[in-house]
Amino acid sequence: MALTFCLVVVMRYIFEADLFAYEEWILVIAFWMYFIGGAVGSYENSHIKADFLLTVLKTARAKWVLVNVTLTLEFIICSILCYWAFLMIQEELVAYPEWQRTSALQIPFIVPRLSIFIGLMFMAFYTLLHLYSGLRSGPSEEWVNEEIPPNSN
């Protein structure tokens, strides 16, 4: 991506040319990066949080209850968002053959938009995974070490 912008500048000055409509494909790549990155964030449990309550709670059991209740809600929310993203994909698909396309390069909108659906699906899946491992191991020492993000303690 950085290379592209360099190329844009180099092309402009050295070749006096215009890397035409590069924003159309670069934004597609960007969207896939955003949402795969977001999914990895769910896997690593590194999404941005403001967990005041967790720092107030003292016992591992209380933390365990809070985290797993939150994870359950999170999974439900994520699933609904995922379903809404599915509706968007469905809308794109149904329009075939008159797909929404970008104006210059004719890239179908479904290409970047699919990343939103897939990213949210993985986020829901990883949330479920965290919830499952939390419920299985119970409020143990090991669980605290694994599931409570290091910067919230």
């Binding site: 949080k49 809600l73 809404w84």
Partner: peptide
């Protein structure tokens, strides 16, 4: 409430979105 519980920010907004929706 969602933020205080420790829900990730995007999903806290997701909760608000679901409510409005």
């Amino acid at each position: 409430i969602a933020l205080v519980m420790g829900m990730p920010v995007p999903f806290a907004f997701g909760a608000a979105l679901i409510y409005i929706g």
